[in-house]
């Protein structure tokens, strides 16, 4: 099978993974946004499946999630929208990110089948317990050719990181510091540096992307010094909040991050 995630990491450096909420700012924006983001230079897409109670998310993604739900987004609608996914973004890895409860209600196997059918590559389900994944869902993920992406935090023990690394064959999502998504308080730079170096020294089999609190080109470039790339979410959502033309705004946002221009001080 064509492994879009592996191909992306093999052929590119400093990968930009962009998160956006499906059905936001308007219900039909999902695919036009995906297309615009990829054309502007996004290397991986992470499409958020909105949930009423997103525990790991800060206020920005809480708001985009409830707006998307109010717009009428749900999993059947999302899969309907994504039927054209691979016509629009043929080679870019696409992940679905969301909480477990809507997936459980949809049915885990039905969810995996539909995700695979529309060409999704992997899943980020932060509240799916590792034990549960290992015992019940890992074979199903494999059956449908879907990769699981796990989060690692500064508090995650080495033994657990090694277990996460062994169970995944996509990339590890390094949470940059304590806090939910969209955090603005800068973590202790020295502690963060040590954390990234500690992970790098583990010689893990999976590449790493750094996420949470990365908002601009400077943050992206810094993250790329410690990992294969970075994940940006809340900052894009914030830019989309009052956007007249969401795809154009998203494209401008990505070009601002990926532009080769020397970083401004």
């Amino acid at each position: 099978m064509n492994n879009r995630i592996k191909n992306a990491f093999a052929s590119k450096q400093n990968l930009l993974n962009v998160y956006f909420t499906a059905g936001y700012p308007r219900l039909p924006d999902t695919l036009p946004l995906a297309k615009a983001l990829v054309e502007a230079g996004a290397d991986i897409l992470e499409i958020g499946m909105p949930f009423s109670d997103p525990l790991a998310d800060g206020p920005v993604i809480q708001r985009s999630s409830s707006a998307a739900l109010a717009n009428g987004m749900n999993l059947p609608v999302l899969f309907e929208q994504l039927r054209e996914l691979r016509a629009v973004v043929p080679e870019t890895p696409v992940l679905l990110m969301g909480y477990l409860n809507p997936v459980l209600q949809f049915g885990v196997e039905a969810f995996l089948r539909q995700a695979a059918a529309v060409g999704v590559d992997g899943l980020i389900l932060p509240d799916l317990p590792l034990d549960e994944y290992e015992e019940r869902y890992h074979p199903l993920f494999q059956q449908y050719g879907l990769k699981a992406v796990f989060l690692v935090t500064p508090q995650t023990s080495e033994a657990r990181i090694r277990r996460l690394d062994a169970l995944s064959d996509a990339f590890l999502y390094l949470v940059s510091g304590p806090g939910t998504t969209g955090g603005t308080t800068l973590p202790d730079a020295e502690a963060q540096q040590q954390y990234f170096e500690r992970i790098a020294a583990l010689n893990l089999k999976n590449p790493r992307l750094i996420g949470f609190g990365i908002a601009d080109k400077m943050g992206f470039d810094r993250a790329c010094e410690h990992a294969e790339g970075a994940i940006i979410g809340s900052a894009l959502i914030r830019a989309l909040q009052d956007a007249e033309d969401a795809p154009a705004t998203a494209a401008r946002f990505v070009r601002g991050i990926k532009s080769p221009v020397a970083r401004s001080v």
């Binding site: 790991a56 796990f150 657990r160």
Partner: peptide
């Protein structure tokens, strides 16, 4: 029951 928590809460 169980513990369905994101990794940030795990430790």
């Amino acid at each position: 029951g169980g513990a369905f928590i994101p990794e940030m809460l795990y430790p």
